[in-house]
Design a protein around this nucleic acid. Structure first.
Lengths: 201, 201
DNA sequence: CCATTTTTGGACTGATTAATCCAAACAAGG
DNA sequence: CCTTGTTTGGATTAATCAGTCCAAAAATGG
């Protein structure tokens, strides 16, 4: 290897770019915001990551991987599948009340989803994967005897992921614990079968 | 009245601005996009609506009113409260599958919610009102004997509105009928009390 | 016809943007 | 020390943006 070696870590810089895009979105993020957060020069950014849009897509893909990994690790942890589901809800609750970043994929959907096909494809695949992980977790809980029959694990998984997306959107404005808890407790009751209502007659 | 009379309808122009902001968001909408959609000159826009941000807030407030009005009209229609709830779900389903505009309040939350206090306040109040309308509708259905006891009408209302927000975010990427139906059918089952799962043991 | 007001659009300002170019500093290996 | 490659930041470009100013045209009432 000849020449001056790279002094910054590509992954670290990408991670810092991710945080800026996650918080501020695509359009509102200026190159200067990125270089200062990433602590690299402007030219290094273009040399290393292409342009702003490429960097955004790479950050979004990284976010997607992170989100899928943590979800899978949580839901597929050893032990009680139902306890894992509860732990997942708890994590989600913490995130919604302690931060206003929301979910980068939800933010991206609403901001650029309709015009950025590459971003849309990343998000669509990620949401499908998250639904799959959730469905499998529900089925494991059922197979372990912690839940009785589920009418449609897939449909229930979709409701859960959709609700998570709704919470994420809302948390951009700031959410109280009470607001999140209402949603989570109701969903938990649905999953565990405590009926919220019963058809009369 | 002396002088040339106004030739455009302020409400119509505002409605057209609303549609642009709804579809494209705040930052991505240029003044030129607005004037051409509103079919008025640039100076008329500034004279009539102040500046871009004021116009956005007014459009957002108009959207909020529209959304609350249609929701209330639907949920408070004469006849069966439960049928009204089902009609509400049906409308929501149509919107999610036939358009990619989503919900302007959800779009606004994720884009400017964290930095635009005026917009945030409009949205927070609107969501609280929608939750209230939904809670009241659930209570009417219960009181009419169409649903049995509800553990927490408020919590259930929050789950429903949150899911609607999640669907709205997701619909920006385009949604299939199947995806929406899974969520709506599960929610309907929750409301009507058809158990999705029961605690084992 | 004149006064009044509105509409329209071009010219303009000032700021900001993404992106490129370039030169100087810098750091390693041969 | 010299070659190679990297980092940095200033200069620059070309585009875009919101917003203001202004003048001409248009439409009404007196």
């Amino acid at each position: 290897m000849r020449g001056r070696p790279k002094t910054f870590d590509r992954d670290e810089a990408l991670e810092r770019a991710l945080e800026v895009f996650w918080q501020k979105g695509y359009a509102a993020t200026a190159i200067g915001d990125l270089t200062s957060a990433m602590r690299i020069g402007r030219q290094s950014l273009y040399d290393t990551f292409g342009d702003k849009h490429e960097l955004y897509l790479e950050a979004l893909a990284r976010y997607k991987e992170m989100r899928i990994r943590t979800t899978r690790d949580m839901l597929e942890a050893p032990g009680s599948p139902l306890a894992n589901l509860r732990a997942f809800f708890a994590m989600w609750r913490e995130e919604a009340t302690e931060a206003t970043s929301g979910c980068m994929m939800v933010n991206s959907s609403t901001e650029v989803g309709a015009v950025d096909d590459a971003a849309a494809r990343i998000i669509e695949k990620a949401l499908a994967r998250l639904e799959e992980l959730m469905r499998e977790a529900l089925e494991r809980a059922r197979d372990a005897g912690e839940l009785s029959e589920l009418a449609s694990p897939r449909a229930l998984a979709r409701l859960i992921v959709t609700s998570a997306n709704g919470i994420a959107a809302r948390s951009r404005l700031g959410m109280t614990v009470e607001e999140v808890d209402d949603v989570i407790e109701t969903l938990t009751a649905v999953v565990t079968g405590a009926s919220q209502a019963a058809v009369a007659r």
